[in-house]
């Protein structure tokens, strides 16, 4: 079994392969606004560098969001094209599940610590989820202040953003900038492998990114002049 994972939710474009023998390889590039030209050549290189072709791949795991609408659109449309052409299943990996997967590297401390994950959703909003002892909370979109107030027990906030959040956090709370530091595609590949082994996959046609933040359109008033 071989899983190909795709990560495009942030300025990073990453891909990774995971087989029965463990991690096979990964590529990660920081390419803001260039995912569309970088992603497929990157997949092609990753496969050929490891003497593999798409026909060796059992399923495609794609980071499903939340995150950049454009990034997710490119990742998911690429995953859909590969899966439909090769006739293989698609597995959606929510960003926070992939982040929870790399928890030891992120927290670098005892397991009982609660970690908060945040992704900059712009206009002051943050997508987030908290990894508690009981597991990962459902993803939500809220103001930063709300995230802090409602989760006093979180000692580490890990965020995908180009802002420095440390200044905004109370003393003793640590902020870690995620951007480009870890290969989320590797985590997605590992998780995809695990889920696919358990028989999990998503229906190809109906699959859509996790947008969370509603897209609000103003309905214009009636412009009729008669």
């Amino acid at each position: 079994m071989l899983i190909l994972a795709i990560d495009t939710f942030s300025p990073v474009c990453g891909t990774a392969l995971f087989s029965d023998a463990g991690p096979v390889g990964s590529i990660q590039q920081t390419v803001p606004n260039r995912h569309s030209e970088v992603l497929l050549p990157q997949i092609s290189s990753l496969l050929s560098d490891n003497n593999l072709t798409l026909s060796d791949v059992s399923a495609v795991a794609v980071i499903s969001g939340p995150g950049s609408f454009t990034g997710l659109r490119i990742g998911v449309s690429t995953a859909k094209g590969l899966c439909m052409g090769a006739g293989i299943p698609l597995i959606g990996i929510p960003v926070f599940d992939a982040l929870a997967e790399i928890r030891p590297e992120l927290a670098n401390q005892k397991k009982k610590t609660e970690i908060g994950f945040l992704i900059d959703a712009r206009q002051g909003d943050w997508y987030g989820a908290v990894l508690k002892k009981s597991g990962l909370t459902a993803p939500e979109c809220k103001l930063l202040q709300k995230w802090k107030e409602e989760n006093p027990e979180v000692t580490v906030w890990v965020a995908e953003t180009d802002q420095d959040l440390q200044e905004l956090l109370p003393d003793g709370i640590r902020f870690s900038d995620l951007t480009g530091k870890f290969c989320l595609a590797e985590a997605a590949a590992r998780l995809g492998f695990e889920w696919f082994s358990q028989g999990k996959s998503n229906p190809l046609h109906e699959f859509e990114p996790v947008y969370i933040k509603d897209f609000i359109v103003r309905v214009p008033s009636n412009p009729s002049l008669i």
């Binding site: 497929l40 094209g81 090769a86």
Partner: peptide, 18 residues
């Protein structure tokens, strides 16, 4: 841009897979 991204990325990855 958004609509084009879907068609282009779907088409080229579908082609790549075949």
């Amino acid at each position: 841009m958004g609509p084009l991204l879907v068609g282009v990325n779907f088409a080229k990855s579908f082609a790549f897979s075949l």
